[in-house]
């Protein structure tokens, strides 16, 4: 089902990357991880990425460090991906609760999910639905079988 599609996870917290990578690999996806914006841009340029998840507060890396503010690196990446890779689906998963940042991200057509509040199952369902083009079923359907 996954047809080995590639998902790129961009986050500087290994603790965030690990469980999401475990779950996506279990579903058969190929998972790439980037811990800085530099690394993310390099991977986007050479890998056949189908979907990305983006954190907001992130180390831009040495190449972008001079020009990008680490408090809004994710916003920079969202814009960059929408501009350069419009075919790639993107989600933003972050703790950031600043409404104006969230509005800017969602105005790019990128769904914002809040870390700590969104269950992994919900994230997986949303990602899977984008990757397969099939709407995900909610938990309410469970137990009727």
């Amino acid at each position: 089902m996954s047809q080995n599609k590639t998902v790129l996870l961009i986050d500087d917290e290994q603790a965030f990357l690990e469980p999401l990578a475990d779950a996506l690999e279990y579903e058969g996806y190929r998972v790439l991880k980037a811990r800085t914006a530099d690394q993310a841009l390099n991977l986007l340029a050479k890998e056949p990425v189908s979907l990305v998840t983006i954190d907001i507060m992130l180390d831009p890396g040495e190449q972008l460090g001079e020009t990008v503010d680490s408090h809004s690196t994710g916003l920079f990446l969202c814009r960059h991906i929408r501009e350069r890779y419009p075919h790639i689906d993107a989600f933003c998963i972050s703790v950031v609760s600043d409404v104006s940042t969230i509005v800017q991200i969602e105005s790019l057509g990128i769904r914002f999910l809040r870390k700590g509040e969104t269950p992994l199952r919900t994230v997986l369902n949303m990602l899977r639905s984008r990757l397969t083009g099939i709407a995900y079923s909610t938990d309410r359907g469970r137990g009727k079988r």
Partner: peptide, 27 residues
């Protein structure tokens, strides 16, 4: 406060998601 929240939510989110993976037998 945003940074405090960010720092505390990161490990708690990891714990929740790891437990979900164990519960759902994804690992």
């Amino acid at each position: 406060l945003q940074n405090v929240s960010h720092q505390l939510v990161a490990p708690l989110n990891a714990i929740k998601w790891h437990i979900e993976n164990i519960n759902e037998r994804r690992i």
